[in-house]
Design a protein around this nucleic acid. Structure first.
Length: 560
RNA sequence: UGGGGGAUCGUCUAGUGGUAGGACGGCGGGUUCUGGCCCCGCUAGCGAGGGUUCGAGUCCUUCUCCCCCAGCCA
């Protein structure tokens, strides 16, 4: 067979293929996903995960999971477990290659000693404020620290004593000796070790000095044999420093850092800090609130790993900052769920309907398709009786043009059942419609009229005597602004209607015992999944995403 | 005013000197026992100016706008 190789999908694949051709990086592909365990993963991380693991898979390489845990004051083992679970759920596997930067502390310390011996690092006694001052500004060069030219011996001694805990936090740091006049601030003698008496979640109290990201990252990559180290755009300025450490320490086949644009999604925020704020201030119920763009939130909402992976593939990888329309994510979701979610009938806002000419004691079992997209999913029986509930939205006493559903004197089809015609509208003392009286045509059982007459609409229903009650949570975008991150205060543009809880909902009886996490399409309404808050007595559903709704569009247009 | 990046339909993204393409969205139509799915069609773009060239989104040049950097965070 003569298969043409697919063109590289993005600039990173181009670089990789070039490296594979020229032999740079040992003709291997080895990537890593390096989260800091200081928060939950979000859909932006999913992009990085798909990229790193996907590249390894595509080019026959490997991808490690490495926790970048060099700052114990922000990290927590709770996050480590949550992150592992999320990556696995997304469908990726790091086999036995689970690493922690903290595993390398001893070796990183040795690297630092090596740097000192080469005269490329020194201990500085300046205070944090002084260091900042000496660093200069964007437009003015920095000044050299008075401690910059200490002897190797003194530096070695001081660094050992930093490790031994002889000095208080913040009193001294180890700096790389590079260039205080560099226009790139990262090269103005950056801090590589600081004194921090904070117990580490993995190394306990063994260390009171911890390496900085800029030092730990390239060397951790080197230690793991990483060939391509992908990160986001804001680290572009750090690349010279990344390369400097590898070069100074004589690393062979050094890994190559490549930067790409992080993902932003419309109507949400993506920074860990802002997400943490939403959680802490109680604007959402937690990291896994179904309105959150976190992996755990999306999972609880009912998103599938397949949909998220497909989305990550479709958005592409580039270097331009962008905000992807959340409609694309929803499209990927619907496409996946349409294929696999069983159809059921559920009424969210019930309107009681009495079918006056239907025998009071009769119950019929109507046969319904579980998924018209996939006949192999079979059929089920849905009980039908004299009193049913329909959706309040499916009836209008005074129907506007193009409203095809039920109205006084009008006939519609009940999905998988009969044609019914509305004969009477019953209201309470306030004029609120509380019940409809209808008649059915026994000849239309199964949904077709022998005389060939047609109806304009098919609506869903549940049998009042058989339906099971449920709570259903409807979600909308969390923010009213397309890019909340650019607002002074993101909480000012929170969408007050991002959550609506419906407590008087009725489900067809086949849903009894539905397991947590199960996905369904509630016909004509959307995709829903069973929330963990469900109890054996009462199911709770989340609306994952609505079906596209052309009637809603028509109605909205009419209102304008 | 220093350095590092970036600019292609409304959005995301291809295009590597030879007819600017795809996806999402929007609009219109077909089909339909879900106003869903599916199918068809339409819509709409190279930040600006100059130059090189038979030919420029692509090369050169000037400019404009946007993002990132002055943590002992990552």
């Amino acid at each position: 067979m003569n298969e043409t190789k697919p063109a590289p999908a993005n600039f990173i694949e181009e670089i990789i293929e070039e490296d594979l051709r020229t032999g740079r990086g040992d003709r291997r592909i080895h990537t890593r996903f390096p989260p800091e365990p200081n928060g939950y993963l979000h859909i932006g991380h999913a992009k990085a995960i798909c990229l790193n693991f996907g590249l390894a898979a595509k080019y026959g390489g490997l991808c490690n999971l490495r926790f970048d845990d060099t700052n114990p004051s922000k990290e927590d083992p709770e996050y480590v477990e949550a992150i592992k679970e999320d990556i696995r759920w997304l469908g990726f596997d790091w086999d036995d290659r689970l690493y922690f930067a903290s595993d390398y502390f001893e070796r990183l310390y040795e690297f630092a000693v090596q740097l000192i011996k080469m005269g490329k690092a020194y201990v500085c006694d300046l205070s944090p404020e002084e260091i900042k001052e000496y660093r200069g500004t964007l437009t003015e060069p920095g000044r050299e620290s008075p401690y910059r030219n200490r002897s190797v011996e003194e530096n070695l001694d001081l660094f050992a004593r930093m490790r031994a805990g002889e000095f208080p936090d913040g009193s001294r740091v180890l700096l790389a000796k590079i260039d205080m006049a560099s226009p790139n601030l990262n090269l103005r003698d950056p801090v590589i070790y600081r004194i921090l008496r904070v117990p580490h979640h993995r190394t306990g109290r063994k260390w009171c000095i911890y390496p900085m990201y800029d030092f730990a990252h390239p060397l951790s990559d080197a230690l793991e044999g990483i060939t391509h180290s992908l990160c986001t755009l804001e680290f572009e300025d750090h690349r010279p420093l990344y390369d400097w450490f590898l070069e100074a320490l004589g690393i062979e086949n050094p890994p190559r850092q490549i930067e790409f644009a992080r993902l932003n999604l419309s109507y949400t925020v993506m920074s860990k800090r802002k997400l943490l704020q939403l959680v802490k201030e109680g604007h959402v119920r937690g990291w896994d609130d179904p309105r959150m763009p976190t992996i755990s939130g999306l999972r609880r909402r009912g998103y599938t790993p397949e949909a998220i992976r497909d989305f990550c593939e479709r958005i592409g990888v580039a270097k331009a900052n962008s905000i992807v329309d959340i409609a694309l994510l929803e499209h990927c979701l619907r496409e996946d769920l349409n294929r696999r979610a069983p159809r059921v009938m559920a009424v969210l806002r019930p309107l009681r309907v009495v079918i006056e000419n239907y025998p009071p004691d009769l119950v019929e079992e109507m046969e319904a398709l579980n998924n018209p997209e996939d006949p192999s999913m079979g059929t089920r029986k849905v009980p039908f009786s004299r009193v049913i509930y329909i959706e309040r939205d499916d009836f209008r006493e005074d129907p506007p043009p193009k409203f095809y559903r039920l109205a006084p004197g009008r006939e519609v089809r009940l999905r998988y059942a009969y044609f019914i015609k509305c004969t009477d509208v019953i209201k309470d003392e306030n004029g609120k419609i509380i019940e409809l009286r209808c008649t059915y045509d026994p000849e239309t059982r199964g949904g077709r009229a022998p005389d060939g007459r047609q109806v304009k609409a098919t609506i869903h229903w549940v049998s009042a005597a058989h339906a099971i009650p449920a709570e259903i949570r409807l979600y909308d975008r969390l923010f009213t602004k397309e890019n909340p991150a650019e607002e002074e205060d993101i909480t000012a543009c929170l969408n007050p209607k991002s959550l609506e809880v419906l407590t008087d909902c009725w489900l067809e009886p086949s849903l009894a015992g539905a397991p947590v996490g199960a996905h369904y399409q509630f016909e004509r309404l959307g995709y829903f999944c069973v929330d963990p808050d469900s109890t054996p007595e009462r199911l709770v559903f989340n609306r994952t995403v609505e079906l596209r709704d052309s009637w809603a569009k028509i109605e909205k247009k009419g209102a304008e």
